[in-house]
Amino acid sequence: MLKIENLEAEIDGKAILKGLNIEVNAGEVHAIMGPNGAGKSTLANVIAGKEEYEVTGGNIELNGEDLNELAPEERAHNGVFLSFQYPVEIPGVSVTNFIKTAINETRKAKGLEDMPAKDMLKMIREKSELLEIDRKFLGRSLNEGFSGGEKKRNEIFQMAMLEPKLAILDETDSGLDIDALRIVANGVNKLKSKDNAVIVITHYQRLLDYIVPDFVHVLHDGKIVKTGDASLALELEAKGYDWIKQELV
């Protein structure tokens, strides 16, 4: 599904990704771990197409299509979803209105009619139940005055509504208490299928107790330096990242 080869990217002239390789197939869950400043969030933003990041080398392909050629909204239309580490506020725009616009814009890009209000309502009901979201929450302005947990739950709610092929969860566990973490992880697990893939970006092993990855990658200084199965995450938790760094020397 996703194939990244020798990816190099920089921001403000500073190289962050320095020849990164990763391949993710449908039905898989990948975890990307690494110390602060390794380039984890950069990777997420580069896949999503944030303009500030300049790709200086390598390829990103999604189902054979070169993502680099596409605008961020086109990548979204093709099934890329990013759960933001810091979701932005949009005052006066309700969660419902926002997700309705997102769904219908995506449908429009595919030449489809707007989703009938009846279907939209049904879907909203289903997905908000899945994530234990209160109805009142849906009428609030997007992320305005949301707690950390509410923001992240809202991200996963949007993911559930948009049904992406590739979901990237950027530090979704940060700011979550243990109950919220469980709800969010449950949601992600229920949305998993053989047709979609998830990349979980995280600093800590905690989230991976709930969302069990098929592969764990360690990102260090802009490159994947080690890949293993779920046990690698436990090892990292026990030994810390210094162990990897020393191994590299």
């Binding site: 303009e51 949009i90 006066g92 725009v93 997102a102 769904i103």
Partner: peptide
């Protein structure tokens, strides 16, 4: 960018933000 990432192009995103 947040709107774009959800499939909403910039022109439409501005309309949404302004209406809000």
């Amino acid at each position: 960018f947040y709107c774009n990432q959800r499939g909403i192009d910039t022109e439409k995103a501005i309309a949404l933000i302004v209406n809000g």
